[in-house]
Design a protein around this nucleic acid. Structure first.
Lengths: 218, 218
DNA sequence: TAGATTGTTAATCGATTAACAATC
DNA sequence: TAGATTGTTAATCGATTAACAATC
C-alpha cells in the first residue's frame, strides 16, 4: 500500500471480487491480463480498474498489463489474507454447521479455531474437526487464543447479546449472518453483516420490474 | 410507484433495509416516524431518506412525518412482496438445508414450492415440509408450476450448469448462494448473488486497517 | 523503434446533502 | 395560527470515465 489515500467503500467492496477473478484466471493458467480484458470479464471499465489499483500503487507494467499471480498476491496482501486472522463460530445450528463444513476459511486467510453453542447435544463434540465448546467459556477462550473475528450464526433472539459479548471480549470484527442488525457502540469493533433477506428482496424488486414491463408489452 | 424515474441501485439496495427497520418499528408499536428519526437509527441523513422515497412518490405527511405501517406497506409493495413470488431450492446440502429450515421465505413474500437434489438419500424425502425431487424433473416442474426464482446451493462444480438449466427453463431470477459467479447470457433473467467470501474478505480488510493503525500508535 | 498499456490527472456523471417553499 | 416536517429543486460532493503522457 504505497499511498496515503482514503479508500472508498466502493473500492473496498470490489477488492474481494478482483481477488476471486484473479484466482480463477490463475487456475486457468493465465499469466498476464490487461485492465481492459479484466474489466470485460468483470463488467467494469478498464479505467475503473486502473483507478482502483492506483489507490494502492501501480502493480502493472506499461505496455504489458498485469501479471496475474503478482496482482493476486498484492490484492491478497491488501485484504490481509496473509495476516493469519483467527475466527470462532457462535451457534452450530444448520447455518453455522453449513459454513463450518463448507466454507473455505483457509483460502480466505482465516483459521477457524472453535465453535460455541449451549446445546448439550453438541457441546464437547466436533464438527468437521472443529471442537464445539460451551458458550460459557467464550470470554476465556477469546482472551486465551487472541481471536480476531467472531462469526454469528445464533438465533436472532441471542444475536445482540452474543455480539455484545464478542465485542466486550475484545474481538476485532464480528461477521454477522443472523439477518438482524447488530448494534455495537465500540468503534474499534467492525461489524460486517450478510443479510440474506436484503439480497432476496432486492431480487424480488428486480423481477417485479421485469414483470411490470412484461405487462406493459402484453 | 408514481414517477417514471430510473431508480439507482444504491436506492434499491436500501429499500430492503427500510423495510426491515420499519418492520421492527411496527413490532415495537411505533406509529409515526420522521425522516430524521428514521435516518438517525439507520445511519442515514433525513435528506437521503426523503430523496429515496421521492423516487416512488410521497408517502408522508408534511408537518407529521411517516405512518410506520403505511410506509412499510408501500415499500413492501415496491419490493414486490405481495406478488406471491414462488421459489425452488437446488441443492439440499448443509447450506440449502439451513436456508430451507430457517429462512422466513413467507415474510419476504416468497412461497417455497420444492427442493431438488441428485442424492438418492434425500430425493423423495421432505425437509421442513418441503418435498425434495430429483433434479431430472427440474424443467418439467418449473414449466408446470410457474417458478419465479431458483435458489442455488449446489456444489460449485454444478453451479453454472444448474444456473443455465434454471434460465433455460424460464425462471425470472436466480438467487445464487454458491460463492462462484454465475454467468447468464439472457438479459431477462436476473442473477443476484450472496458472496460469503467477499463479505469476509471485506471484513478482513477492515480489521487489517485497524491493526495497521494500532501498530502506528504502539 | 512502434505498439501497447499503464499511471495519473482532468472532465463528467451521478449520488448525497442542503435548502426552502408547501402544507399538514 | 405557529410549529413541524415533508416534497422537491439546487448545490455539493464523490465516484466513474475519459484522456493522454510516460514507459515498457
Amino acid at each position: 500500500m504505497k499511498r496515503n489515500m482514503k479508500v472508498s467503500t466502493a473500492v473496498i467492496r470490489r477488492l474481494p471480487r478482483y481477488y476471486r477473478h484473479l484466482s480463477e484466471l490463475q487456475e486457468a493458467g493465465t499469466v498476464r491480463i490487461s485492465s481492459s480484458a479484466l474489466g470485460g470479464s468483470m463488467g467494469l471499465t478498464a479505467s475503473q480498474i486502473r483507478q482502483d489499483l492506483f489507490c494502492f500503487g501501480g502493480f502493472g507494467q506499461q505496455g504489458y498489463g498485469y501479471k496475474v499471480d503478482l496482482l493476486k498476491e498484492e490484492i491478497g496482501e491488501i485484504l490481509g489474507i496473509s495476516r493469519g486472522h483467527t475466527l470462532i463460530v457462535l451457534g452450530t445450528g444448520n447455518l453455522g454447521r453449513a459454513i463450518i463444513k463448507n466454507f473455505r476459511f483457509s483460502s480466505n486467510g482465516f483459521r477457524l479455531l472453535a465453535a460455541f453453542d449451549v446445546d448439550p447435544a453438541v457441546v464437547g463434540a466436533q464438527i468437521a474437526g472443529v471442537p464445539v465448546y460451551h458458550a460459557d467459556g467464550l470470554e476465556a477462550f477469546i482472551a486465551g487464543h487472541g481471536v480476531d473475528v467472531g462469526m454469528l450464526t445464533v438465533p436472532i433472539s441471542a444475536a445482540q447479546e452474543m455480539g455484545d459479548r464478542l465485542a466486550g471480549a475484545g474481538v476485532k470484527g464480528i461477521w454477522n449472518l443472523t439477518n438482524c442488525e447488530i448494534l455495537c457502540d465500540r468503534p474499534e469493533v467492525v461489524v460486517e453483516s450478510v443479510h440474506f433477506s436484503d439480497s432476496l428482496l432486492a431480487l424480488s424488486y428486480m423481477i417485479s420490474q421485469q414483470e411490470g414491463s412484461e405487462e406493459e408489452k402484453g
